Each structure stands twice: as C-alpha cells, then as structure tokens.
Computed example of a mutant assay.
Amino acid sequence: MAQAQQISSRQVQARFKGKSDTCSGFVLDRAMQRLTDTDDARPVSAIDVEFGDLSYFNRTVRKYFGLTPSQVRRMRGIIYAI
C-alpha cells in the first residue's frame, strides 16, 4: 500500500492511528468486499488487495475469516441471501 501511494510504511500506519481500524483490517475488509462482489467475475488470483503474494493472501484470509478466498468466492451468493 505504501509503495502504491509513494509514501513510507510508517506514514500508512500513522494514517490509521486513532481510527477504529488498522491497515491490515482495512486491506482484509477490502479483500472480502471484492471476493463477495457478485458483479466481479475475476478469479481470486486477479483480485489485487495489496498483498503482493497470492499464497500470503490465501493464508491471511483463511486465518481471519476461517475460509479460503476460493471458498468465500463460491459462497458469495449465499452470503447475500442471508
């Protein structure tokens, strides 16, 4: 995220300080939004959420949400139906 904005990682952290969310939480929320978007037909590997590494992205999503990104993508219609 810092590279994309051409600022230091410390500056990114500072922008989230004092807010209810963290930088990691923001990125994970953004990932979940993209994974559950029923209008987004891109494969999981094409979803750019600032992780830079697909295996790290998969591990992190699974750690925080208890599902792999592919599982979330397959369930997206069910999620909105609830």
Rank of each mutant, 00 (worst) to 15 (best):
A2R: 01
Q3L: 06
A4C: 01
Q5W: 02
Q6W: 03
I7M: 00
I7L: 01
I7T: 03
S9D: 03
S9E: 09
Q11C: 02
Q13G: 02
A14E: 08
A14M: 07
A14D: 05
R15W: 05
S20K: 10
D21A: 13
D21S: 14
C23T: 05
C23Y: 08
S24P: 01
S24L: 14
G25C: 07
F26C: 09
V27F: 04
L28S: 00
D29G: 13
R30Q: 08
R30I: 01
A31H: 02
R34E: 09
L35G: 03
T36G: 01
D37F: 02
D37E: 04
T38K: 14
T38W: 06
T38Q: 12
T38L: 13
D40I: 07
D40S: 07
P43D: 11
V44H: 06
V44E: 08
S45Y: 10
A46E: 15
A46P: 01
I47D: 03
D48Q: 13
V49E: 05
V49D: 07
E50D: 12
D53Y: 14
D53F: 15
L54F: 12
S55L: 11
Y56G: 02
Y56L: 10
R59D: 08
R59C: 04
T60N: 09
R62D: 07
K63Y: 08
K63M: 07
Y64V: 13
Y64H: 15
Y64K: 14
Y64C: 09
F65Q: 10
F65M: 11
F65W: 14
T68E: 06
T68M: 08
P69T: 10
S70I: 13
Q71M: 15
V72C: 06
R73D: 09
R73S: 10
R74Q: 11
R74P: 00
R74W: 03
M75T: 02
M75A: 15
I78M: 13
Y80R: 15
Y80T: 15
Y80D: 14
A81W: 12
I82F: 07
